[in-house]
């Protein structure tokens, strides 16, 4: 075969396969929404998944947020003091966390901690024929397995992002006020004046909600679509992290552009 033709053919195959996967994931997403009423009817399933995806991710979220907040406090202080506005450190930490770092870092950590767990669990359920068994019992795996996990992820993400921002601000406060010596009142009052609930807090929550939808559906799709072998599940788990991370960063740019244009 002509080498150029071979290269073009490979590119074509890759593009077609990506589009096919996107369509397949969209179909799963639509079916998940259609079966959502089932997962809310059996709310205990969704609550159980919120525990596994949300509550169990709390440690990594809280610890990371604390360190991110402390680093922000340090970095912010050294830059702001050059301009004589070190009192604004509270605003810098809060805005950075609420607008960007809270939703984005939470989503990245969520993809690594909960997303991989979801993919591996569903992939293994498929490999051990548990999903087929459910189908043969006339029970839809999308209603029983996929939908509760989807809503658990979507509900957990904004809550985790809020906790991340809150703990991050505390980390920033710890570095700025007791350690560096920035005025306690200035730290909080500047933050109080300059952080807008509608623009900063709500937009951050909207972002984390969108990231929650994206990360969870990617994790679910990768698990549901994984070849039922050890290698297939391991590749699907890796793809979950890579695809979720890139999607979160891309979506963050798009959402920020829309939010800033307002």
């Amino acid at each position: 075969m002509n080498p150029i033709f071979k290269i073009l053919s490979n590119i074509g195959n890759q593009v077609t396969s990506r589009i096919w996967r996107l369509g397949s994931a969209t179909r799963l997403f639509c079916l998940t929404l259609i079966y959502s009423s089932e997962s809310f009817r059996r709310i205990h399933l969704t609550i159980r998944e919120i525990y596994f995806t949300g509550v169990m991710s709390l440690i990594i979220i809280v610890v990371s947020a604390f360190f991110v907040g402390m680093v922000l406090g340090l970095q912010g202080y050294y830059t702001l003091q050059k301009y004589g506005s070190s009192e604004s450190i509270g605003v810098l930490v809060a805005l950075a966390l609420l607008r960007e770092l809270g939703p984005v870092v939470t989503a990245l950590l969520f993809a690594g901690r909960a997303g991989t767990a979801i993919t591996a669990e569903i992939g293994l359920m498929k490999a051990t024929e548990q999903l087929s068994a459910m189908e043969m019992m006339a029970i839809s795996p999308i209603a029983r397995i996929i939908s509760p996990r989807f809503w658990a992820g979507v509900i957990s993400m904004p809550i985790l992002a809020s906790i991340f921002s809150m703990v991050g601000v505390m980390g920033g406060y710890l570095v700025a006020v007791p350690i560096i010596g920035v005025d306690h009142g200035a730290f909080w009052s500047q933050m109080n004046v300059n952080v807008d609930f509608r623009i900063d807090v709500i937009n951050g929550l909207i972002k984390s909600f969108v990231f929650g939808v994206a990360c969870t559906i990617i994790a679910l799709y990768e698990g549901y679509d994984a070849p039922p072998t050890a290698e297939g599940v391991s590749r699907a788990t890796t793809r979950t992290v890579v695809t979720s991370s890139l999607t979160v960063l891309g979506l963050d740019f798009i959402l920020t552009s829309f939010m800033m244009s307002n």
């Binding site: 359920m125 051990t128 024929e129 548990q130 087929s132 068994a133 043969m136």
Partner: peptide
Amino acid sequence: GMLFQHGALFT
């Protein structure tokens, strides 16, 4: 009712 090769019990 179907019995799968490896049982397919929900773990």
